[in-house]
């Protein structure tokens, strides 16, 4: 990795990709910036408003509440999915047909369109036709996601854990598989306890993939839209309305281009900051490893 050649002609290889991604990323981003400083009423009717929309958005109490809910949601699912994912990866079979079967089963939730995931859980938790809703009712638990905010939250978290823990598990599983068998043999000779094996052999190998897992899960949970939209529609009230849904309602539902663009930019800056911090961390972890002469 360290002996790359310095050659600016490599730009030629990157150029086609750059044109395509720029078409999809830069032109829309510029447009969003343009919208954010104007009141856009129609194709040829817009008024310059300066920083007004940014001021409104930063002080909007509904958005601040959505932001708070979003942070809470992201932290809760990270706190559940990361340990659970590690646990599952540790108990997954390592070879043979069982390993393949478990792999395919575990990846299933990741391959379902996001709004179908919402539909599946909406059906599953309905009191009249859904197994879970019906079962809880039979057990005498008053469970209703359209009335009770607590139930709605619990269901969304359960759905997200169902949907995305497989990703964490797969990442950890692939990290574990890269540990040479010799390490385990050495540990057996030393009669190391299971905890010692986990702490000193498995966890260090997992650090890299875990950073990727946290990064991906954090970012995806920030973008969550289709699943809660189908499951609860953001309700009851606005108790499960997360950031992207507030944005989509504003931009599509109410056609408020200016404010929603200003909001998008603030949102994007936050995401940019967080991904930069994570990216720098990953890069420095790798650099430290290289300088130690390791993997």
């Amino acid at each position: 990795m360290n002996n790359k050649v310095y050659n600016n002609r490599a730009w030629l290889l990157v150029l086609p990709m750059l044109v395509l991604v720029a078409f999809s990323a830069i032109i829309p981003l510029m447009t969003v910036v343009n919208y954010s400083v104007q009141d856009v009423l129609g194709p040829n009717a817009s008024f310059f408003t300066g920083t007004e929309w940014f001021r409104t958005m930063l002080n909007d109490s509904a958005l601040q509440a959505a932001f708070g809910r979003q942070i809470m949601f992201s932290l809760i699912i990270l706190a559940i999915q990361i340990p659970l994912g590690i646990g599952i990866a540790l108990i997954m079979p390592k070879q043979g047909w069982q390993a393949s079967a478990v792999l395919i089963l575990i990846t299933l939730p990741l391959l379902i369109p996001w709004n179908v995931v919402g539909s599946i859980w909406q059906i599953f938790t309905r009191g009249d036709i859904g197994l879970m809703g019906w079962g809880l009712r039979e057990l005498g638990i008053n469970y209703n996601i359209t009335r009770n905010a607590g139930d709605a939250w619990a269901t969304i978290i359960l759905m997200d854990v169902w949907h995305w823990t497989p990703l964490v598990a797969m990442l950890c599983y692939s990290g574990l598989r890269s540990i040479p068998e010799a390490y385990y043999q050495a540990a057996r000779i030393d009669r190391a306890s299971k905890w010692a094996v986990f702490r000193y052999i498995q966890l260090p190998k997992l650090t890299n993939v875990l950073v990727i897992a946290v990064l991906l899960r954090f970012m995806h949970s920030f973008m969550i839209y289709a699943e809660p939209f189908v499951l609860t529609g953001g309700g009851p009230g606005s108790s499960t309305t997360f950031l992207t849904q507030s944005l989509a309602t504003m931009a599509i539902g109410q056609q408020d281009l200016g404010p929603s663009a200003a909001f998008s930019i603030i949102y994007f800056l936050v995401i940019l900051l967080v991904s930069w911090v994570f990216y720098t961390t990953i890069m420095h972890l790798q650099k430290d490893k290289n300088s130690q002469g390791g993997v």
């Binding site: 510029m30 400083v37 104007q38």
Partner: peptide, 14 residues
């Protein structure tokens, strides 16, 4: 390009 609703300040910015 008109749909991008350029303004002078954003043009200067970019």
């Amino acid at each position: 390009m008109s749909w991008m609703v350029w303004t002078l300040p954003t043009a200067i910015f970019f």
